[in-house]
Amino acid sequence: MSKLLVSHSPHVHSGDSVNKNMYGVIIALLPALAASFWFFGIGALVVTLTSVATCLLAEYIISKYILKQKPSITDGSAAVTGLLLAFNLPSNFPVALIIIGAIVAIGMGKMSFGGLGQNPFNPALVGRVFLLISYPVQMTSWPEPVASRGSYIDASTGATPLAIMKEGLASGSSYSEIVAQIPSYKELFLGVSGGSAGEVAAIALLLGFGYMLWKKIISWHIPVAVIGSTAIFTGVLHAVDPTANATPLFHILSGGLMLGAIFMATDYSSSPMAIKGMWIYGIGIGVITVTIRTWGAYPEGISFAILIMNAFVPLIDKYIKPKRFGEKVVE
């Protein structure tokens, strides 16, 4: 040994890496992926493969030929975006439109800002909302769970529980009539309900949440803030008028709330850095979601809520600092 290596401390590293975190998220998404295959069969498979493949390809082409950087597709983040976009689409969604959505997600949502870590909005949600606004018919046709396993474009469709609830209340049906049409809590928890391919099974999403907490990929604050504030807000509405507002449990278990709270709102670069900021952001998402679900034009509002709060993140990070050590003296 001739020369000694000299560098500043620390001289050791935790071994954590971007790849570990991104592949960790992919592992955490596997239960929900399995659930989407179980309930929506071949359609979910086509949607997922198309979305993930397009995201990887789009990132490769953009980084190599447009930005002229070393392609970063092996870090796992493009695959995460692809999976999340697929989870947010109905399982009978046409391939051509998935490709458009995936290109928008990666191109507009991520690479145009400089790639991993730079995107102010959740890329998968940018793709989803683009598709929702551009192709509202295709984006709101929901294959029946289990029954549509063997079919793709021609799957038999029905309404989502949130849509049934919203239209029922709007058309003046009695609350008990509506409840009779929607799946039970147990069915919602297990995922036996219409909806986007990856959002239906609450239990699968919770398993993924547990895995990410165990591996310290995310902290619990944002999901708990989103779900908690949704529960409290809908709880108050339900208490004020039980005949016009669904129960908190219904709101938590239906639609994309779990998927959004656990996997979409926690996107690193589009969420706040300080714990207090995470609470504000999470509560904002919950409140906006319930507001859209209750008074808005759409039956579901989690995607818009997350994107709106994404826009506030720079402001939150500027004004909400972590709690400093030694700020207050305990006398």
Partner: peptide, 29 residues
């Protein structure tokens, strides 16, 4: 293998440095 530094990559804003700081600072910033 214990002490080598890996190549530095973009900040992904994971906030792990913020949670790790014992003084409640924002190291990334």
């Amino acid at each position: 293998e214990i002490t080598s530094r890996k190549e530095s990559q973009n900040c992904i804003k994971c906030a792990k440095c913020v949670s790790a700081c014992p003084m409640g600072l924002s190291p990334y910033l």
